[in-house]
């Protein structure tokens, strides 16, 4: 009950922040640029699906960034300013405070994504004609899932530290680790185990490891929603063919285990949105304000 009250207050509060509107504007702009890129360049194979793929790239980079910016100060900012001393004078638990933050910041990030996808979708429709609204909605939903994962992570970080600087350092570190360098790290692990660099064909454990990052899990979900491979990885050490290969192809044929299913990737995003927030709450629960 109090979670909803707290979340409503928080949405009211940050929706009046210029930062949130700025982020929405930037994300919308990049999505529209992405979607109109092929038309602008006059590329022959311009199609709705390629255009959608062109939104996935800014999404993979910007959605986690936006979610982190929206979330990393959520608790620690109020702790430092003294807002929490006001809020915790009311009969609310610290768990409700953290949960309210996750809900509210998720609503805000989802709202930004909805605006960007609606505008980019309109532009895409004008440029390329018909495409499946259902697939596009699935794509948008997966993007919201990516946002939720990073909101949970950022709020979790925010709840577990005492200083803004520490929260910022951890949030930036998480962004680099999970968004930019995850595949390099996974590749490093592969090299440590096998002594070789991962190729197109890899063992199942390696693919599972790759998909533990919210960004890779997101890519799996987008591919599933669009029904086509999406090339949106950054800093991969695997051959380009691996990017467009299906899980079955990368495993060299044979059955694809449940741990590499689309649902598994959805679960990964869900865990990212819940586990860090739970850890943050656990650290925040009994700490001195």
């Amino acid at each position: 009950m109090s979670v909803i009250g707290l979340a409503r207050k928080d949405v009211l509060d940050i929706s009046r922040s210029r930062m949130v509107w700025g982020l929405t504007g930037v994300f919308t702009l990049f999505s529209v640029l992405g979607v109109s890129l092929f038309a602008l360049l006059g590329v022959e194979e311009a199609s709705a699906i390629r255009a959608a793929e062109a939104i996935a790239f800014p999404s993979i980079l910007l959605v986690p960034l936006a979610a982190i910016v929206v979330g990393y100060m959520a608790v620690v900012g109020e702790r430092r300013s003294g807002n929490l001393r006001l809020l915790l004078g009311f009969p609310v638990s610290r768990g409700a405070v953290v949960a309210g933050k996750v809900v509210a910041r998720t609503v805000v990030v989802a709202g930004s994504i909805a605006v960007a996808f609606a505008v980019a979708g309109g532009v895409g429709f004008a440029l390329y004609g018909g495409f499946s609204v259902l697939r596009y909605a699935g794509f948008a939903l997966a993007t919201v899932g990516l946002g939720v994962a990073f909101v949970g992570l950022a709020v979790g970080i925010s709840a577990s530290v005492r200083s803004r600087g520490k929260a910022l350092a951890l949030a930036v570190g998480a962004y680099f680790l999970l968004v930019l360098f995850w595949q390099l790290i996974a590749g490093g692990a592969y090299y440590a185990v096998t002594g070789t660099v991962p190729g197109v064909e890899v063992p199942a454990w390696y693919l599972v490891l790759e998909r533990l990052s919210p960004s890779m899990a997101y890519q799996v979900l987008v591919e599933s929603a669009l029904g086509a491979p999406v090339q949106a990885s950054i800093f991969s050490i695997r051959p380009p063919d691996a990017m467009t290969a299906t899980a079955a192809e990368q495993l060299g044929g044979g059955p694809v285990p449940v741990s590499l299913s689309t649902s598994a990737s959805a679960l990964v995003l869900a865990l990212w949105s819940v586990v860090p927030a739970a850890v943050g709450y656990w650290r925040f629960r009994a700490s001195d304000l």
């Binding site: 207050k9 009211l12 509060d13 940050i14 009046r16 922040s17 300013s81 003294g82 807002n83 001393r85 006001l86 915790l88 004078g89 009311f90 009969p91 609310v92 638990s93």
Partner: peptide, 21 residues
């Protein structure tokens, strides 16, 4: 604590209002 704060009115030192509310 929650039961206490249901029946207590608090004006604590070093609290801050929400600037945008």
């Amino acid at each position: 604590s929650k039961a206490i704060r249901r029946r207590v009115g608090v004006l604590s030192d070093g609290y801050a209002l929400y600037d945008r509310l």
